[in-house]
Write a protein that binds this DNA or RNA. Structure first.
Length: 329
DNA sequence: CCTATTTGACCCAG
DNA sequence: CTGGGTCAAATAGG
């Protein structure tokens, strides 16, 4: 069975928890697959962009810039507090975008500092990448095979900032994700799913995430984010409803760690009722596979109780939206 | 025709 | 050698 996820009203791709896998039928292709070539072009572009050097600023300059950005964001948050009393959805929208912009800039700035990271606040995720110290191989595609099968040729992720989140529901973080892989993990009951930003190629957004189902009943997921979104297709704040959800409080997401200077500011709770529902298939429904749950993107909803914090340069910026009035359409 | 998903192949780090 | 991360062909479906 294959679930076709459609875009929701906000042009946000759904976060497709995989549907039941299809048998992979190998068959000679009857038609050409033009995307393949396109993908390679995009990948080369990615490499070119990533290889470009960061402007010749000292860590101190960057730190000052980051300090200033941080200050600006805090001021914006103060402004938001003022606006709570008599705010319009439009103003909240604007404010959220401003905050988002600050956070993104901070994260981008810090991302480029991960070799001489500011204050050493970037820490590899202990889970998967703490040991990956080596630089990505400049040419990881030195396949010995003479053909053009580039499967498996990739730029392995450099140890980059990551942060994890555990929750019993799945958070719609407002970004468009596309699944690109699934692996069975040793000693893990459920396979791990790999997602990249939909705008990896059109906007060279390097953000990826992994979703690991930890347990069933109650369901528990760990979502680990790597890299930061540089795409501009962040879910419009006006489309994000910050109202409380009906989820059980016990299922509140828990931000496990901030291995980055800019933990995601996109754990914005949605009103599940406003996001289209996808097919939800219970993990064991019929398949019998020891497989991942098939959850709808709307299952990625977080609760309003999610505590959103950001850590930047050792300071913690509380990003909790508890006291925010909900957005309305 | 297009985009998204599935899944085996492939590569790298340990 | 093995496990994990990524690629990309094959496939599904609008």
């Amino acid at each position: 069975m294959k679930t076709r996820y459609s875009y929701n009203n906000y042009n946000i791709n759904t976060i497709g928890w995989p549907s039941l896998p299809q048998p992979h039928k190998k068959r000679a292709r009857e038609v050409s697959y033009p995307k393949s070539k396109r993908k390679k072009e995009h990948r080369q572009r990615d490499i070119d962009i990533m290889d470009c050097s960061w402007p010749d600023t000292t860590p101190f300059d960057r730190r000052k810039a980051a300090d200033e950005l941080l200050r600006g964001r805090e001021l914006a948050q103060q402004l938001r507090a003022y606006l709570q009393i008599s705010s319009t959805p439009a103003s909240q929208d604007l404010l959220t975008r401003i905050l988002s912009s600050f956070s993104k800039t901070l994260s981008i700035l810090n991302h480029r500092c991960d070799s001489d990271d500011i204050n050493g606040s970037i820490v590899d995720s202990p889970e998967d990448h703490g040991s990956r110290k080596s630089e990505e191989s400049g040419d990881s595609c030195k396949s010995s095979t003479p053909n053009n099968d580039r499967r498996g040729c990739y730029k392995r992720r450099k140890s980059c900032q990551s942060w994890a989140r555990e929750s019993c529901d799945l958070v719609d973080d407002g970004h468009a994700w596309r699944k690109y892989g699934q692996k069975t993990i040793l000693n893990a009951k459920y396979p791990r799913n790999y997602y990249r930003c939909t705008h990896k190629y059109d906007q060279t957004c390097q953000a990826t995430k992994q979703v690991q189902r930890l347990q069933d009943n109650p369901p528990k997921f760990r979502t680990t984010y790597y890299g930061n979104h540089t795409c501009s297709n962040f879910l419009k704040a006006s489309d994000i409803v910050l109202g409380s959800s009906n989820f059980d409080d016990s299922c509140s997401g828990v931000l496990l760690s901030f291995d980055t200077t800019a933990a995601p500011n996109f754990f914005l709770p949605h009103d599940p009722t406003l996001v289209k529902k996808e097919e939800v298939v219970t993990p064991d429904a019929g398949s019998g596979r020891d497989d991942e749950a098939v959850c709808s993107p709307s299952d990625y909803m977080s609760t309003a109780d999610d505590h959103l914090s950001e850590v930047f340069m050792g300071s913690v910026v509380d990003f909790e939206d508890d006291d925010l009035p909900p957005f309305h359409f």
